[in-house]
Design a binder for these strands. Structure first.
Length: 570
RNA sequence: CGGGAUGUAGCGCAGUUUGGCAGCGCGCAGCGUUCGGGACGCUGAGGCCCCGGGUUCAAAUCCCGGCAUCCCGACCA
């Protein structure tokens, strides 16, 4: 491609609405342009990158035995009502009506559609398993789109759905998808960690997220420095430890009330009493089955809401809201303690159970209690891991040190079970003639999000450094030609080189613009093709071109008549 | 949905306090000089100053209403 013909305008300044490198650079390099909040056009260079990612995903999915389809983006709302997800997804769906007032939604995902298709086509155990995937646009009306392509309202996603006779068969495909994902992200040049995750709205059981390690990521994940344990922070557990702030002394004095006027926070109380925050207990109120329940953790730690819900399951739990507190003045927010007369269940972290001499809320406004001992001064009904894991905690598996990092979720694999097949009657007949719901898995890759994640990992102060295989072109060829006969000679040589490289199968972006050398160098670094070839008058006189590897900055000279063989590897 | 901010040329911004010809840099077009790290000179094109209403002799600027965008938080696969 000739740059003189390419639809491209690079920007010298960062766009005012971009915060992170990938957003700034993708706009500055003319890869994308915003048309509305969270909605982008893909211009020629960006489109080529997106197609390259798509092709990698396609090759690996095909190799893993999945079959490509295209499912509708416009989906009838009625289908979503059958699984109850019209409500569960709720305002996150773009909804609209046709002229006959029938409700539709733009696809945020496609479990319903694909399940209904498989249900109507397949009905025998002989047909299974089957794994269908598509690479298609998805729509989520995010509350707050941000970070360019990382959280957009329109995004390209690969979604696959597999159907099985039983969980054992599902696990084979799940493992194959997991391995395919590792290859996909490796080929994209991403540093990715697979982490155990909490099941979200999609439902189901076992699932893993693939996190591209990046400080701008929106998700925290925990990983062990000594073993291979890794989990989303919502799902992560640590080994049971006694809080360092608690005393092991068995002869704690009797509990004693202390006035704490207006001190409804851990930090206020700790400062007032002159004790560390981890000698206090934090009691968080939940509504469990209509009754008060408490999650109790050391004062310096945060409650993992998901862990609490797991601990009280199958009962449904939700955090107390301001309305709940207003309705029940006997539960004074800021002064709640586990020794409460109305509490139905006290769930405490093991570190609480193992400690003594805690400062707890007195359940009266402006008052706390010190020297509280578990099982003596307040009861604990359930001991469960409740704290959000932090760096420095110990691994539940091996005792090693846990670390917390941030990541961009670029993939997610789920073992769904029978939630959708039951709701949509996707059943099969077994060899004994009995009917069963199909067992399902689903597997997502954020294709457009990968583009942003790759730029986050592969850029420097001068621009993008595309990994091979993703770059819009393999090579950027620059001609530095002045006026006159010498310049014409350089131009001719560059034209020949451009032609020969293309003939040899090398994809080339040829900067044939009538621009000054500085402009060409700066644009080449910004755009980030892996290899730059510079042909100028001085080099031509000696029969050489200059090669620069964009990512490392290494330069060398290649004889002009060896450029094609060197770059094409032939 | 709470808190904060912004909306002026393709991009980045000044001008709004104190009402008085619509500005600057980059980019774009033409001519000339340059030609190995975002060159220089001259000339020029380009505007619904977010939208609607109001005040005024006069509104980018003041008042009222709306919309959009961004940031922080909450929410979320």
């Amino acid at each position: 491609m000739r740059m003189s013909q390419l639809f491209l305008r690079t920007l010298r300044d960062d766009p005012a609405d971009a915060e992170i490198d990938s957003h700034k650079l993708l706009v500055r390099t003319g890869a994308i342009r915003r048309i509305s909040s969270g909605i982008y056009s893909w211009l020629p260079l960006g489109n080529r990158v997106l197609r390259n990612v798509e092709q990698i995903v396609r090759e690996e999915m095909d190799a893993a035995g999945a079959q490509e389809v295209i499912l509708p983006i416009v989906q009838p709302l009625e289908l979503w009502e059958r699984t109850g997800r019209d409500v569960a997804y709720g305002p996150q769906m773009f909804k609209f009506k046709d002229r006959r007032e029938t409700g539709f939604a733009l696809a945020p995902t496609a479990e319903e559609v694909v399940t209904s298709i498989v249900a109507s086509e397949y009905s025998s155990y002989r047909d299974l398993p089957v794994n269908l995937y598509q690479i298609n646009w998805k729509y989520r009306d995010e509350l707050r789109p941000r970070f360019g392509l990382l959280r957009s309202r329109e995004f390209l996603m690969k979604d696959a759905y597999s159907f099985h006779v039983d969980v054992e068969d599902l696990r084979k495909t799940y493992a194959a998808m997991y391995e395919a994902y590792e290859r996909i992200f490796a080929r994209c040049g991403l540093t990715v960690r697979a982490v155990e995750a909490q099941a979200g709205e999609i439902g189901g059981d076992i699932n893993h997220e693939f996190m591209a390690v990046a400080p701008v990521g929106e998700d925290d994940f925990v990983w062990c420095r000594s073993c291979d344990y890794a989990a989303n922070v919502e799902a992560a557990v640590r080994s049971a430890l006694v809080s360092p702030g608690s005393s092991a002394d068995a002869s704690i004095a009797a509990p004693e009330a202390v006035p704490t006027p207006g001190m409804g926070s851990i930090s206020d109380v700790a400062a007032h009493l002159g004790v560390p925050e981890n000698t206090l207990l934090k009691s968080i109120a939940f509504d469990v089955g209509g009754k008060l329940a408490l999650a109790v953790v050391p004062g310096d730690r945060e409650v993992n809401e998901f862990a609490f819900k797991r601990a009280v399951a199958p009962l449904a739990a939700r955090l107390y809201t301001d309305e709940d507190f207003a309705r029940n003045p006997a539960i004074p927010k800021g002064f709640i303690g586990p020794d409460h007369s109305e509490v139905s269940i006290v769930v405490a972290d093991p570190s609480v159970h193992g400690g003594q001499g805690w400062v707890i809320g007195a359940n009266r406004v402006d008052e706390h209690t010190r020297n509280a001992v578990p099982m003596r001064d307040f009861r604990i009904d359930v001991v469960a891991d409740l704290v959000i894991v932090a760096s420095g905690d110990s691994c539940a598996r091996c005792g090693g040190e846990l670390s917390v990092d941030r990541g961009i979720e670029v993939g997610h694999v789920f073992q769904l079970g029978t939630k959708y097949s039951t709701a949509l009657d996707a059943t099969y007949t077994d060899d004994a003639g009995a009917q069963h719901p199909m067992v399902m898995g689903c597997y997502g890759v954020g294709v457009s999000r990968i583009v942003a994640a790759v730029v986050e990992e592969h850029s420097d102060e001068n621009g993008i450094t595309w990994p091979e295989g993703l770059a819009p072109y393999d090579v950027q060829l620059m001609v530095l030609a002045g006026k006159g006969d010498a310049g014409a000679g350089v131009k001719d040589a560059a034209e020949r080189l451009y032609r020969d490289l293309q003939a040899a199968g090398v994809s080339v972006l040829f900067d044939d613009r009538d621009a000054s050398p500085g402009v060409k160098f700066a644009d080449a670094d910004l755009l980030g093709m892996p290899v730059q070839i510079v042909l100028g008058a001085k080099g031509l006189a000696r029969g050489v071109a200059e090669r620069k590897i964009r990512a490392t900055g290494e330069r060398d000279e290649i004889a002009i008549d060896e450029v094609v063989t060197t770059l094409s590897g032939r």
